[in-house]
Amino acid sequence: MSQVLDTPPPTTAAPADDPAALAARYGLAVSGARPTLPEYVRQLWARRHFITAFATAKLTSQYSQAKLGQVWQVMTPLLNAAVYYFIFGVLMNTKRHVPDFVPFLVTGVFIWTFTQSSIMTGTRAIAGNLGLVRALHFPRAALPVSFALQQLQQLLFSMAALIVILLSFGVPVSASWLLALPVLVLQFTFNAGVAMIVARMGAKTPDIAQLMPFLLRTWMYVSGVMWSLDNMLKGRDPLLKLALQCNPAAVYIDLMRYALIDSFHAKSLPPHVWALGVGWALVAGIGGFIYFWKAEETYGRG
């Protein structure tokens, strides 16, 4: 009789009871289930301080054992630029027909490095931090975003060096320098988006990390980092030139050159370049975020 009145018979211990029904009755949720997209955005926003703290921590710990310490933040990109100047500027003489070649080259190298290292570190963002993923609970997108942010901080150091270079090569200060800010915002959004895409791919297939340097090097050479696409492709198929100029890396590099260097004219830019810059940022940023979120519950599988 009693079972009719209230509780099920005592023999029906919890495991034998339908667990789903029991869970539903007490409002339990499936552990490790993927949150909805708006909820995921909210969780990620709640962890913004962790994202910035993690990025800054990674950045400062990077050179903390070196004698020169944080000086390397500026030295590394400068040495990079020096190598490229020696090979491409001096030996291969691509500096012909490019006015202000050193500022042109250094801007290209710095802006390209930002995208390149965001993608490289993004590839290992999940796969290289499995310990963290398996120990603590946070929206996993925090990792690739944090690595992209670390690269942005790194770039800001480089930009300080770049300004010194610009001034010492006699590039005049102008109001168009302010355009550098929106360019950086767009490029960061793009980089974070791509970092999330490769983070998901790298989490499933770690081999991507081996392949990525080759893809990135190809991408670098077709993006006019150390030469002017305009000059290189003179007399070639105009469609090829347009395609190369519209690739996101080239778009952000050329926008930054346009913003900073007075001798780099708008005619070297592809048509609708700002729309392209915004478009690439939105496509990669939103697309990458959704693509990453779709596999949220699978990260950390051994």
Binding site: A23, L28, A29, G32, S61, V133, A135, L136, G300
Partner: peptide, 28 residues
């Protein structure tokens, strides 16, 4: 909720957490 299950289900009240932050700390 840190490791996905192959079969079956785990239901929890709120977010259970492991005691440990080792992985998040940086020696440098």
């Amino acid at each position: 909720g840190l490791l996905p299950v192959e079969n079956g289900k785990i239901y929890t009240d709120g977010q259970p957490s492991l005691l440990g932050v080792n992985a998040a700390l940086m020696n440098d």
